[in-house]
Design a binder for these strands. Structure first.
Length: 223
DNA sequence: TACCAGGAGAAAA
DNA sequence: TTTTCTCATGGT
């Protein structure tokens, strides 16, 4: 898959001009970013914030505490984030992996491809969650692809819609300079755009809301 | 009331 | 191998 660099950069510039820097990822520590990446799977961030708040209040926002916490109790704490039973297991899987790997510091010594592969080996961590972690927690230049990225790319005519995650991530990364700050901001801006338009235009958007049901072709960011 | 949200894994076809 | 189903709360 090939994506035109100029087009991709023009989209980025347009989003940055419209919304400004997003200062991602929201979180007070690297561990909080890692936890947030799992909790936000198919879930609105507002609900994730509630869940993380519960973990903080209960003193369960560390790998050791999450592993020590009975599964049902952990599930109750993260209930606002939805899929709480599933995510409680995923959090504990990841925390076990994190401790076995020497923590964030130990994992920080791994080359990016190794880091990514090992994260993907953890049950409950798929491509997007792994890349969220690699980019936002470990500050490595990987391009995060989410549902918004796919929809926006399709709306703008730069994607066909059938590409695999790996094809999209590699295609975007190859078309842009490998800069962590750029990849950080780009993904954040796409999410911001989606939220902004969806919130502003409900119930019926006059501009591309990035939903599958939206028939509007979307704003033209092409150069 | 119905739809949607910063996915992933298991089961079924 | 590909498609479908399941997990679930909270906002609009």
């Amino acid at each position: 898959m090939r994506v035109d660099s100029l087009t991709l950069y023009a989209i980025y510039e347009a989003l940055l001009e419209r919304y400004g820097p997003q200062h991602w990822w929201p979180g007070e520590s690297v561990f909080e970013v890692l936890v947030g990446a799992i909790l936000t799977q198919n879930t609105a961030w507002n609900n994730v914030e509630r869940a993380i708040g519960n973990l903080k209040t209960a003193g369960v926002l560390s790998a050791e505490a999450i592993l020590d916490c009975p599964r049902d109790d952990l599930a109750a704490l993260i209930r606002p984030a939805g899929y709480f039973n599933v995510k409680a297991g995923r959090l504990q899987n990841f925390c076990l992996f994190l401790i076995d790997s020497g923590g964030v510091k130990g994992m920080g010594h791994w080359p990016t491809p190794v880091l990514r592969e090992r994260l993907l080996s953890v049950n409950g961590i798929g491509p997007e969650t792994a890349d969220d972690m690699v980019l936002y927690a470990f500050q490595r230049p990987v391009f995060v692809v989410d549902a918004y990225t796919r929809r926006l790319g399709k709306r703008l005519g730069i994607l066909g819609g059938e590409e695999t995650y790996a094809q999209l991530s590699a295609g975007f990364a190859a078309a842009l300079p490998a800069e962590t700050a750029l990849f950080n901001e780009y993904h954040a801006l796409i999410v911001r755009h989606a939220k902004e338009i969806c919130t502003a235009r409900k119930p019926r958007c006059a501009e591309c809301c990035l939903r599958d049901t939206c028939a509007y072709p979307g704003p033209d960011f092409r150069p």
